[in-house]
Simulated assay, not measured.
Amino acid sequence: MKSLSTFLARSVSLLALTLSLAFAFDPSSVQDDAFVNGKFCKDPKLATLEDYVITGLDERRPVTDPIGSNVTFVNGNNLPGLNTIGLSFARVDFAVNGQVPPHFHPQASEVLFVTEGTVLAGFVSSDEDGNRLFTKTLNKGDLIVFPMGLVHHAVNVGKGPAVAFGTLNSQNPGMITIANTAILWSNPTT
């Protein structure tokens, strides 16, 4: 009798684990006129090629920001075909000494791929043994991964402009810039 109760207990536990894993997934990207991610999904019969293509990401963007970078973000807002797919992209144009300041994405990991110039990029881990800095000088053709929720940065350390492309595994990754957050923490009335 004890073996039967042990068998049943293990079977129920295994079933519960299987069901929890079976339902641990993102919603289907196929939608029928639903309001998803703050947007109405387009009727697939009305979709056009323009909903799935964006052009011009090979063109240089002017860098006028005082920190020396210009980020062109691509998500479901400007490329409707990305809605519900769980991806977004960014082109980053760097002036000499330009940077993307330390920040993190609470809802996405990121892959940064350098297509021009030399970029110093890295992130800070949050290990049990203490925080560790991972940093690398990246040249054209190099790539770095920033795990979700970890503070990361990128700085043009070359003698000319630099360009990098980021891919994020969320259409709404969020972005919290550390400098702005630190200012708020030190002066909550701001």
Rank of each mutant, 00 (worst) to 15 (best):
L14T: 13
P27K: 13
E50I: 00
D33R: 14
T135V: 13
E128C: 00
T189L: 10
F165T: 02
P188Q: 01
L21W: 08
N169S: 09
V30Q: 10
E59Y: 02
V71Q: 04
L4W: 07
T18P: 00
T190W: 05
A24R: 09
S170G: 07
G166T: 13
L87W: 03
G122I: 05
C41K: 11
S5W: 10
T190G: 02
L4V: 14
S88G: 05
W185T: 14
T177A: 13
V163R: 14
N75Y: 07
F7Q: 12
V114L: 01
L82D: 06
R60M: 09
E59R: 15
P188I: 03
G38W: 06
V74Q: 06
G76N: 11
S11N: 09
E116M: 06
G68V: 11
V36A: 05
F40E: 09
S109F: 07
R10L: 15
V100Q: 07
G81N: 11
V53Q: 08
A108E: 04
H153G: 02
V30Y: 07
G130M: 05
V36P: 01
C41T: 15
T64V: 08
L17N: 09
A108W: 03
G68I: 10
F73N: 08
S88M: 05
G56N: 08
F23A: 10
T181E: 10
N169T: 10
L8V: 15
A22W: 02
K42V: 15
L19V: 15
V151M: 14
D32E: 12
K39P: 00
P62S: 08
N70M: 10
S186Y: 05
P62K: 07
S88Y: 04
G158K: 02
K45L: 11
N180R: 10
S125V: 05
K2V: 11
L19S: 12
V92A: 07
F104C: 01
P173N: 07
D142V: 01
M148H: 03
A16K: 14
N77Y: 06
A16V: 15
R60Y: 06
T118W: 00
F40S: 10
D33C: 09
E110D: 12
P101Q: 13
V92Q: 02
L168F: 15
N187P: 00
